[in-house]
Design a binder for these strands. Structure first.
Lengths: 210, 210
DNA sequence: AGCAAACACAAACAAACGTTTGAAACGTCT
DNA sequence: AGACGTTTCAAACGTTTGTTTGTGTTTGCT
């Protein structure tokens, strides 16, 4: 095991508990006792609870953004479809978590919480640190749907982001309901396909005259 | 003013503070001091903090569901377009808050928090109490897009719900960004139009072969 | 071996939390 | 007026929170 497994155990446990209960609802004592480390370890290694939250985010986002950026550069100047770009995000998310679909869901759940909770100082942090990757992705999207004006695209991307975060946040519950109501047991990949089709349809929607 | 203005002042203040900071992050002391009432008033009038949260929800949802149900019955067996149904939700939300767009945003922000936070016992409460109105609305949607299978529609409605909650949760921030980046100062109505177009496009998207 | 830095640990800290208490103030009856 | 139920209020309750402290223990370097 790694030289400092305490740090990793804290990060892993915090990630899971934050996603399950939320930030404020998860105490350091719950994290440390479940992780099997001393209570003071959090403040020793991370400084504070808020710094822990940022560290949890950063660990995923770093991996995700690096991989996404690589793939975007690999595409060079190729023309890529809207669906391909959306799938890219999905696949990169999964790959950045070493194929663990459960952790992908956890991360998006965290994103949703972080996006709405916490006065947005987390959002500013993300924008400053990974804003350029996001901008690069946005330009690719614009190439894929040249008929949609930049401002329209801005809004639609955020609409799509909402769907994604919301869906992946509660995917387990939704899949359970789906199975109960329709008898269809969908895998995570099936949901992804449906979501991407929905998002592509929305982003491509013709602008209606007002 | 009403006979019991204490209850209303608590509800109003709690609604705003919950939306701003989240449930766990908002203390009863913050609510009561801002509302200008005694700390013990919450437990006296509502019983507990959790009961307060439910009361805040119920006040809006009751008004919303009653109005939505009325409008749905008024439509009788008319054929209504998908866009018209989505607009109906939007207009009903605004009407149920007496035209106060700020409070509509607050409510959707609360919905988003309630949907992800709190182990879902709030979601169960909503489903039990207002599930039939939701079902009735869903049947109308199905009529509007008969080509989409029921299960597909189930998923797409939840995708749409995610977009809506997420967007209206952070609409103010997004509008500020939009103004800064594009110089376009959109009103809440403009965002609604764009959101509805996006949702309609997504819900109507053709199912792709897998 | 010996020293210093890094880490783990139990214990305690002050602050904030939701909730309860008992008495004061209020309005409404007969 | 007096008595009653309702509401308000300041104060305190017992927990739980994040953080800090002091003291061991381990680790790596010379």
């Amino acid at each position: 095991m790694p030289p400092s497994s305490t740090v990793d155990r804290i990060l892993d446990t915090a990630e899971a508990l934050f996603a399950e209960k939320g930030f404020a609802e998860t105490s350091l004592r719950a994290i440390t006792s479940k992780a099997g480390v001393n209570l003071a370890a959090v403040n020793y290694h991370f400084g504070s609870k808020e710094a822990l939250i940022q560290a949890v985010f950063q660990r995923f986002l770093e991996a995700f953004c690096v991989r996404l950026d690589e793939k975007l550069r690999d595409m060079a100047d190729d023309e890529v479809s809207l669906e391909a770009l959306l799938s890219l995000v999905s696949h990169t998310s999964v790959a950045a978590q070493q194929g663990d679909a459960r952790r992908v869901a956890i991360f998006f759940r965290l994103s949703g919480l972080g996006y709405t909770q916490g006065q947005g100082h987390l959002r500013k942090f993300l924008r400053e640190r990974y804003g350029d990757v996001f901008t690069r992705f946005l330009m690719r999207l614009q190439q894929a749907v040249p008929d949609v004006s930049p401002m329209e695209l801005f809004w639609r991307v955020h609409f799509a982001l909402g769907s994604t975060i919301f869906t992946l946040s509660g995917m387990d519950s939704l899949r359970a309901i789906c199975k109960a109501d329709f008898g269809d047991d969908l895998g995570p990949g099936d949901v992804d396909k449906r979501l991407i089709a929905f998002l592509a349809g929305g982003i491509r929607a013709s602008v209606q005259a007002s």
